[in-house]
């Protein structure tokens, strides 16, 4: 067990140093997928067999950043049955300076798409009628169930909420 831990620590260290060198050249990162709401809407209504978790967040939103690792872990834990999509509401001026470096330093494997649509009143109610516009919020849905969460999650809370969906699908 000790050796495993040491190995993990070693790994995380080696990852970090790798991250640092990578961050220097953001131009090598894949371009961000940036959409207005009409481009985001299909992701809120995917008709595949998976359960979809859509999280609205931004790098400047502290509670969003705090819960983000749980969404990342959930995606890794349920690769087959779940698709997590992180919808970033970062400001365009910060795509290169904040969002891309964030994705890189946190080594996000989860899909990130960017919503850039200033006419917020036109699209917020289309995500959910009960959403006042505060972030973070999360939408979980599959072919038989759909819920909107105006709250933050711990890993266990997200996991137990997700299980309700996986049993109904």
């Amino acid at each position: 067990m000790k050796y495993v831990l040491m190995f993990l620590v070693f790994l995380s260290f080696s990852c970090k140093s790798e991250v640092k060198t990578k961050v220097k050249d953001l131009t090598l990162l894949p371009p961000l997928e940036i959409y207005d709401f009409s481009g985001i809407e299909p992701y809120l209504n995917l008709e595949g067999s998976k359960t979809y978790i859509i999280n609205f967040w931004a790098t400047w939103c502290a509670p969003c950043v705090k819960e983000l690792p749980h969404f990342e872990s959930i995606q890794q834990a349920y690769k087959k049955d779940v698709e997590v999509i992180l919808v970033s509401l970062d400001f365009p001026a910060q795509y290169e300076t904040k969002l891309k470096p964030f994705i890189e330093t946190h080594q996000l494997k989860t899909k990130v798409i960017v919503l850039d649509d200033p006419d917020m009143n036109s699209w917020i109610p289309k995500v959910d009628l009960n959403w006042s516009g505060a972030i973070p919020v999360t939408l979980i849905y599959n072919s038989s169930k759909r819920s909107f969460y105006n709250r933050t999650f711990t890993y266990n809370e997200l996991d137990s909420e997700l299980k309700n969906f996986l049993t109904t699908n």
Binding site: C61, P63, M120, N121, P125, S132, G133, A134
Partner: peptide, 10 residues
Amino acid sequence: KTKAIGCSIK
């Protein structure tokens, strides 16, 4: 009534 994005009250 309108909706707008904002930061949740801490």
